[in-house]
Each structure stands twice: as C-alpha cells, then as structure tokens.
Amino acid sequence: MSQQYTLYPLLPHDTPALYPIYSAAFSPTPFYTLVFPPSIPASTMYSWYTRRISLQLQKPQVRGFKIVTAENEIVAFARWNFPYVPDTREKEGEVEGEGDEAQKEEKKEKEETEDDWPPGTNLTLTTAKFGGLDGMREEWVDPTRDYVCALLAVHPTHQRKSLGKRLLQHVLNLADAEGRRVYIEATDAGYPLYKKLGFEQVDVLPIDMRKWGVEGLGSNIIMIREPVLKS
C-alpha cells in the first residue's frame, strides 16, 4: 500500500519538527557543510533553527505549508512570503518621530535575534550567499505584489514522490488566480522541476566555492514565473 500524504498549513507548534527535515535535505551539500561545520553541535543547530523559524512565522507576510504522512509525521515543508502591503500603523512606524525610539529599538533587537547565526558558522560565506540573495530580491521582487518561495525542503526518504511539486503547485494556483508573479531561488538540483512548472531564469548568483577548497560554483539561479491565465 502506497504512503498517503496530506498538505496542511504550517503552524507555530510545528517548528520543532522542521530542523531534522532541513538538515537531512541540505546537509549532504558542500555548501551546507562549509556554512555549518560538523564542529557545531546538533543541539545548537536545532535551537538556532527552531528559534529562527518561529520568529519568521510571526511576520504577517510569511506563510508555511507542510506535507504529513498518515502517521502525522511532517516530511516536507515550504516557507513563503506572500504579497503584503503594510498597514497605516506599520508605515507610520517607519517615520522618525517623537516617542518612537523604544519601538525602533525593540524592532532592532528582534531583527538581530532573527539574523543571528550559531557560533562556528562561516560568516564570510553566509554574507556572500544570503547577502547576495537579499540583493537579488530587492532587484527582482515587489513584496507588495509577488509571491516568494523562501525555502522548500523534502526529507530524503520521501523525495521523488512529487511532494516538492505539490507544495509549490498549491501556491502557484493562488498566484495564477490572482494574476501574480512567483519568485524562487533555484539550485541546480531544483532547477528542472521549477522549469517544468513554468519558471524562467532571470539572473544568477555565483559563489566561488574554490575559496573554501571546493571545486566549482555554488550558484543560485534566480527564476520568476509569470501568472498562467485560466481560459
């Protein structure tokens, strides 16, 4: 009997179950090993990632979806930034004014906590990659109009079962219904699937891995999918 999988929204209480999936999906790659050396304890990585995801899910534009088995085990998940227009109060918070220093300081502390990395992380490489990707999003994404797939992870024991496609297609259907674009940062492994789903390459962020003793480029391919209009 084949395994049954169901898609649900990702909820805050799901966060403790996500790091094992994230680690299993990405730790075999040279980039992950360079960024997070084996010297970093697994418990430290778990605490860091769980806190990071918890903070991200508190943002109003962030949505997540999970795939669970019949035994209620989460085996894949995706984190998205949905189109979001700040309300008047949020916009006013960005304006300098009397009495807003405490609010700005609180916001700064939260951002620093979220952007923190576990001790032992290769900060040079994280800056090159994630700083570069931030720049790509600023160039290509209108956060008030576009959907952004921020992360997609499928546990290796459940790969090649179309779970990644299912997580993507769920939001692609929403984007098509609203006539919106979708942005994703592809690795070489994910590129063929995204291409089949209608994404097109618009840019690339190359990371020269030779600086860290690994041959080749650790590239992220910037892809955008235009909405598919239903007849």
Results as ranks from 00 to 15, higher is better:
T121M: 03
P143W: 05
D134P: 01
L123E: 12
R137K: 15
W117H: 05
K129I: 15
G131N: 09
E112Q: 14
P119L: 02
K107R: 14
P118V: 02
E109Q: 14
T126G: 04
K108Q: 11
E139A: 11
K107I: 06
T126P: 03
K108M: 09
E109I: 10
E112F: 04
F130P: 01
G132F: 03
G120D: 03
T113G: 10
T124H: 11
T113H: 05
L125D: 03
D116I: 02
R145T: 08
L123P: 02
G120H: 07
L125V: 04
E114Q: 14
K129M: 14
N122I: 05
D115N: 14
L125K: 04
V141D: 02
T121K: 07
G131C: 08
A128P: 00
V141A: 07
E111W: 04
V141M: 05
W117T: 09
L133E: 10
W140I: 00
E112V: 08
D115Y: 08
T144G: 08
R137L: 12
G135W: 07
E139N: 06
R145C: 10
V141I: 15
D116C: 11
T121P: 03
T124R: 13
G120W: 07
D142T: 08
D134V: 13
F130D: 14
E109V: 13
D142L: 07
W117Y: 13
L125C: 02
P143I: 07
K107H: 08
W117A: 05
W117C: 01
P119R: 02
T124P: 00
P143E: 12
E111G: 01
G120Y: 03
P118S: 01
T113N: 07
F130A: 02
T127R: 14
K107S: 11
T113Q: 15
T144Y: 03
G120A: 00
T126K: 11
G131M: 08
W140E: 03
D116K: 12
D134C: 08
K129N: 11
E111R: 13
G135D: 13
K110M: 13
K129F: 08
T124N: 13
F130T: 03
T144E: 15
N122D: 12
T121W: 06
T144F: 05
N122F: 04
G135E: 15
L125M: 09
K110A: 15
R145M: 13
P118F: 00
D115G: 11
G120F: 06
K110R: 15
N122M: 02
L123Q: 13
W140F: 12
R145H: 13
D115E: 13
E114R: 15
T113A: 14
G135C: 07
T144M: 11
W140V: 06
K110V: 14
R145K: 14
K110I: 09
K108Y: 05
M136R: 12
P118L: 02
K129P: 00
P143G: 07
D142K: 10
W117D: 07
P119I: 03
K110S: 10
G132H: 07
R137M: 11
A128I: 13
A128W: 12
L123V: 11
K110F: 14
D115P: 00
